[in-house]
Design a protein around this nucleic acid. Structure first.
Length: 586
DNA sequence: GTGATTTGTCATGAT
DNA sequence: TAATCATGACAAATC
């Protein structure tokens, strides 16, 4: 039991002491002891007595120390300051006795050998000393003549001995506002120092915090509020994207090719205000949602490999393929599978020279993957007929498909919607030539499936198809290689597309950051000028305060010899700058 | 002929 | 574990 009670008692003692401390701190606020606990009144009386005794002892010790130190100092008749006698023991004692003062004045006296205080010193001193001064008011009265000049250089002016400006009846009324402004000025300096405006040590925070403040201005150059991309936008995008393609993905080149405003205006006319949410339009979903649409619409048309058109592998069709080298893509992004299979080529005369855009138009109009699968899968699974049967059926379906799509192709071509770029056409032919090699291999091994089918069938359907046809190892290996290469080709194209979009997104971010940097630099310059002005005002105010402080003889105190300091309780003291000489002497 | 660009392919790791 | 995807690297074709 005792072991359990003792901790409780100890804890109670701690609580009591804590309450005492809190109560002492709140005396100024009018808090009564009973606010905390009635049971400790008696203890409080005892503590007060003990405290008085301690205070008396402390003051006595201080007085003794002052006497001792004073005995070790001598009055400089020229400066009127007390300077330590140059003996090692005295110096050591002086330092020891004046340590508390040194803490508050070291910076001023060690960093500056000159007599004048720096602005920062003034600001610090004023901020600490005059929390409630109003410069707009008439000049504040100084310490009254009754305030004796400090001659006690041992302890300088201890709070209990120093004239307290705040208690001076001549002290002016509230000057809260002005000193709030002055301290705000100090805060500005601190903020400027800490925020790293110049070195951008914390760019991320600054950006995030301030993004929304300046980005809206970018909207000034936006051309509209449409969420959809206008034709002009699309055209410009095409041009810009072509430039990007020619820039070899080098950022400096990108910078040169895209001006800041140009880029932003061109690509994100209606997205700029959203940037502060860290969701750039080229990143993540937005990228897919907008840039993808743009690029899909006119630039990097993604491969649509799902338009399957099983071809005919008869020998005579091989000859036809030789005549139409562009007729066997199906894998390429740029070549429409609908138009590319051997059978297709046979049944769609005049389609050889179609541009990629025309192909894309066809793809978009064809209903995409599902519809093509609907055409394809029945071919595969309606019967387990031999290969020839399958191929023949494929040819029929292709012919039917062509009848549907051909008019659209003609329409697109006739409208001149997209003229085939020569380079693209060449590349298309090249890719088709590559694909033809797989076709050739498949034909040489008598693989009963088209490359399109091999590549684009879902894995389950693909496995079913493979299971229904007994293929030897070479055929199986080739089919799987074709499928792997085809998938990888699409993946590579998507990967490159994403890479380009990322580059464009980063370019956009870079432009945004440049704009932000410019804005911050302007703001910094503005703040610096404001800060200089406030420092001037502060300095003049500081000197004005000092000019009104008079000693017993009516002489003003010199700011070089005295400084104003504020204690933690808000009291303001006039502190002589004797420490300077002490430091110098050391 | 050379450099740049595009595209396909392979290898490898991640999902 | 297999299939697929993502991506860097390389090579070939083309301009």
């Amino acid at each position: 039991m005792m072991e359990l009670e003792l901790p409780k008692m100890h804890q109670s003692q701690q609580d009591m002491d804590l309450i005492d401390i809190l109560w002492r701190q709140d005396i100024d606020l009018g808090a009564g002891r009973e606010v905390f606990d009635f049971s400790y009144r008696q203890k409080e009386v005892q503590l007060q007595r003990q405290k008085k005794l301690e205070e008396e002892k402390r003051q006595q010790i201080v007085r003794e120390q002052e006497k001792a130190l004073l005995a070790q100092l001598q009055l400089d008749e020229e400066t009127g300051e007390f300077v330590p006698r140059l003996t090692p023991t005295n110096n050591a004692l002086t330092q020891a006795n004046t340590a508390p003062v040194e803490i508050t004045q070291n910076v001023a006296f060690t960093e500056e050998d000159g007599d004048a205080m720096s602005f920062d010193e003034c600001m610090e001193l004023l901020a600490e000393t005059f929390p409630l001064v109003e410069p707009a008011e008439p000049a504040p009265p100084c310490l009254g003549p009754s305030i004796p000049p400090c001659t006690d250089n041992t302890h300088l002016m201890m709070p209990g001995e120093m004239p307290m400006l705040t208690q001076n009846p001549l002290m002016p009324g509230p000057m809260d506002q002005t000193w709030m402004d002055l301290q705000h000025c100090l805060n500005i300096q601190e903020i400027l120092d800490m925020s790293g405006y110049v070195n951008t040590a914390q760019p991320a925070n600054v950006q995030e915090s301030n993004y929304s403040q300046y980005l809206p201005k970018l909207s000034d150059v936006t051309t509209g509020t449409t969420d959809m991309c206008p034709p002009k936008f699309m055209n410009t995008y095409n041009e810009a994207f072509s430039n990007v393609n020619q820039m070899n993905l080098k950022t400096p080149d990108l910078n040169e090719s895209f001006g800041t405003d140009e880029f932003c205006d061109i690509f994100y006319p209606d997205l700029e205000p959203k940037v502060n949410n860290a969701s750039l339009p080229c990143e993540g979903g937005n990228t897919d949602g907008q840039l993808d649409e743009l690029s899909n619409a006119s630039l990097l048309k993604p491969m649509d490999l799902h338009s399957l058109s099983p071809g005919n592998f008869s020998t005579e069709k091989n000859e036809d393929m030789a005549e139409f080298p562009d007729s066997d893509s199906g894998l390429s992004l740029d070549a429409s599978p609908n138009m590319s299979s051997p059978g297709k080529s046979l049944h769609s005369d005049g389609c050889v020279g179609f541009s990629d855009s025309d192909m894309d138009e066809l793809e978009s109009g064809s209903g995409g993957t599902e519809s093509d699968y609907a055409d394809m899968l029945p071919l595969l699974f309606q019967s387990d007929s031999p290969q020839q049967s399958l191929l023949e059926n494929s040819g029929i379906n292709l012919a039917q498909e062509d009848n549907v799509k051909q008019p659209k192709t003609d329409q697109a071509e006739a409208s001149g919607y997209s003229k085939p770029p020569f380079t693209k056409d060449k590349q298309k032919k090249r890719s088709e030539a590559r694909l033809t090699r797989d076709e050739e291999r498949a034909r040489s091994l008598k693989v009963p499936f088209t490359v399109d089918l091999i590549i684009n069938l879902p894995v389950d359907d693909f496995n079913s198809m493979m299971a229904k046809h007994q293929l030897n190892e070479a055929q199986l290996a080739l089919v799987r290689d074709i499928r792997r290469r085809g998938k990888n080709k699409v993946a590579a194209q998507n990967c490159r597309k994403r890479k380009m979009e990322n580059i464009m997104g980063l370019e956009y971010q870079l432009d945004s950051l440049k704009e932000e940097k410019e804005r911050l630099l302007k703001e910094k310059s503005k703040n610096s000028s404001s800060l200089r002005e406030m420092k001037k005002q502060l300095n003049s105010l500081y000197l004005e305060v000092f000019s009104m402080l008079k000693d017993e003889q009516g002489k003003p105190y010199s700011p070089n010899d005295y400084s104003l300091q504020q204690t933690s309780d808000g009291s303001v003291f006039l502190v002589p700058r004797i420490k300077k000489t002490l430091v110098k002497s050391n």
